[in-house]
Nucleic acid binder design. Structure first.
Lengths: 353, 353
DNA sequence: TTGTAGGCGTTATCAT
DNA sequence: ATGATAACGCCTACAA
């Protein structure tokens, strides 16, 4: 098959349609071989200064950029890290990922993001997609996924780390925080303030280990303070302001009403606060509300939200460092636990009466 | 050079390390040629049902996924659309992009996102990167970029469309809304409520045509109502809650204070509202505040925010349709203007006194 | 309907 | 220090 690359190639006249220039175009224009051009780009020190300058100026002039796919194919490395997050709509992930990406860049790595919408099957497919696109390593959120997926990653020897969660002795490298502990502590404070009728608004726990851990922390606190698990009303709903409001509506229709509502994240909590206002209930006078994450909104909302601060940016940064290390041949399986902190603001107060 | 692909390849024994399977692996296991496997994947109707089933089951079994780079290289098409947005941290883009991506998926297209942090040089580089990664078309935000960039896209015949802005007679396909008109209208209402001392908090206008248009709409309204441009205090600062608060702080320190503060987007406005509260100023009793975008927060914040509603999701959807059309060979250069609407909430009221 | 083989743009090995 | 050239994994025109 004869292609336009063979024989004399018709160079377009000035300012005409031009397909992306290739290594060969650069090589020809610079009067060297493609190998030399490639070296100028990937190992500049291995080519003498004079040639290099000439080549690079041609590169500049032609606006040459290496074809990514071809490069990946030949080099079997892309310097690209794939990340699969549950959703881009929650600022929490956006922020952590931003830091992750910034730090990756420091190490010459590029980020490729996909979102799974909290759907395990989708995550599995995204893993395949990212690998097909050449991801050298993956960032995954939380531990919750089928053993089959872990086996798959293992068999393919895909380097990966887990973020947004941390448990001692987990088999994987996890850079994150304990989701249970701070909620247990926050729960202690809530009960300490005299609350007895507690409700929880959480994300569905079956596919979300962070949500599960947070709730279990609260229930642990409840037990400690002599409140039975079945006395605690739990509503599961997907993370969104609207859903938080709706759930709060249900809770506030109960008699007797809960005097404290602990939410699985700030987004739900903000919705809950909004609904309380709509219903004419005072916070924390009539009912207390707490969150988790400490997003910007937590300070803005009125009353401001008592919540658990999570060092998202730091986590992203550390995760990136760790991945870079992995790619550089580091063997340790050690994860990292980041500290969370309870932030007391206005939305939590003593139980009414 | 002898590689492991030549001659007999050692298949790993069960459950051992396994590199990603290739077309050839599938072909061998199914007892057909690679061409047939390829066809099963790309043009199923061109292979007889029986063979196809066998092949596909092997594909399943091996967990085969085509190598993206190789495919792009050979097919010279990736079905991937690149999008460059200013930032992922603003929910506004996240939301529009989500819809964009959903609609792309309907057309069998995949989204690749990059963010430019509002930096033109970075945008230019991202364009190159996305093209190097094989993007078949691009989504760009706003009109503001150097002629050189437009020339580059033109020469390479890269299909692209512009979103988040629309102007009649622009040379490019733009799916968006008029940024000036609604601000002019909102300005009319503000002045109509008796405000005379107006201030504006906006994003830097030099690199952001949307910001520029919004401000110019306001100033137009000012002129109409007999207020000179130089009487209007304008603060430029990057979009963030914190910056909105800071700017509001400066404005409220002036004597006499502005009685209305129009913000370039909701994020700034929310910051401004927060600061007013901190300063003990009543909204809209002491000072009115308006925004732009109508993000979720606009309803949540207290007092709720009077703003301009923008149909972000619809815009994303339409942009995706248009791009799919372009790739299918549609020739029209026609853009699309989407309607915005002013949403009156609590933060705008009559001028004090 | 299916197989053969060349080429997509790079990298990397081996000569020179 | 530089140049030839064989892969990399896939698609597709052409042949069978």
């Amino acid at each position: 098959m004869q292609t336009r690359r063979n024989g004399v190639r018709k160079r377009p006249s000035h300012e005409e349609r031009a397909p992306s220039p290739t290594l060969e175009d650069v090589a020809r224009a610079a009067g060297v071989s493609t190998a030399t051009v490639s070296r100028c780009l990937n190992a500049p020190e291995r080519v003498v200064a004079k040639t290099r300058e000439r080549v690079l100026s041609v590169v500049q002039e032609l606006g040459y950029a290496p074809n990514f796919g071809a490069r990946a194919l030949a080099a079997r490395r892309t310097n690209t890290i794939g990340a699969i997050i549950p959703t881009m709509e929650n600022a929490i992930f956006a922020r952590g990922l931003q830091a992750f990406q910034e730090e990756l860049a420091e190490h010459g790595l590029t980020l490729l993001v996909a979102s799974s919408s909290y759907r395990p099957e989708l995550e599995e497919q995204q893993i395949r997609t990212l690998l097909a696109r050449g991801a050298d390593a993956l960032l995954l959120i939380g531990f919750e996924r089928s053993q089959a997926v872990y086996d798959f990653l293992e068999r393919r020897s895909v380097p990966f780390i887990i973020a947004w969660a941390h448990r001692e002795g987990a088999g994987q490298i996890a850079i994150g925080f304990d989701n249970r502990k701070p909620m247990r502590e926050l729960g202690d404070r809530v009960f300490g303030l005299g609350h007895r009728r507690l409700a929880i608004i959480t994300a569905p726990r079956t596919v979300n280990d962070r949500a599960r851990d947070r709730v279990s922390g609260i229930l642990e606190a409840a037990r400690t303070h002599g409140v039975q698990e079945r006395e605690v009303r739990i509503i599961e709903t997907e993370y969104s302001v609207e859903n938080g409001a709706k759930a709060m509506g249900q809770l506030m229709a109960m008699t007797p009403r809960p005097t404290a509502v602990m939410c699985g994240n700030d987004v739900l909590a903000v919705g809950a606060i909004g609904m309380a206002r709509t219903l004419g209930l005072a916070i924390p006078g009539d009912v207390s509300v707490t969150g988790f994450d400490d997003i910007e909104l937590a300070r803005i909302v009125m009353p401001s939200l008592t919540t658990v601060h999570v060092p998202h940016r730091e986590m992203g940064r550390q995760a990136a460092r760790r991945i870079a290390g992995l790619l550089a041949g580091e063997r340790s399986r050690q994860g990292m636990e980041l500290a969370t902190a309870i932030v007391e603001r206005e939305s939590l107060g003593p139980a009414p009466e």
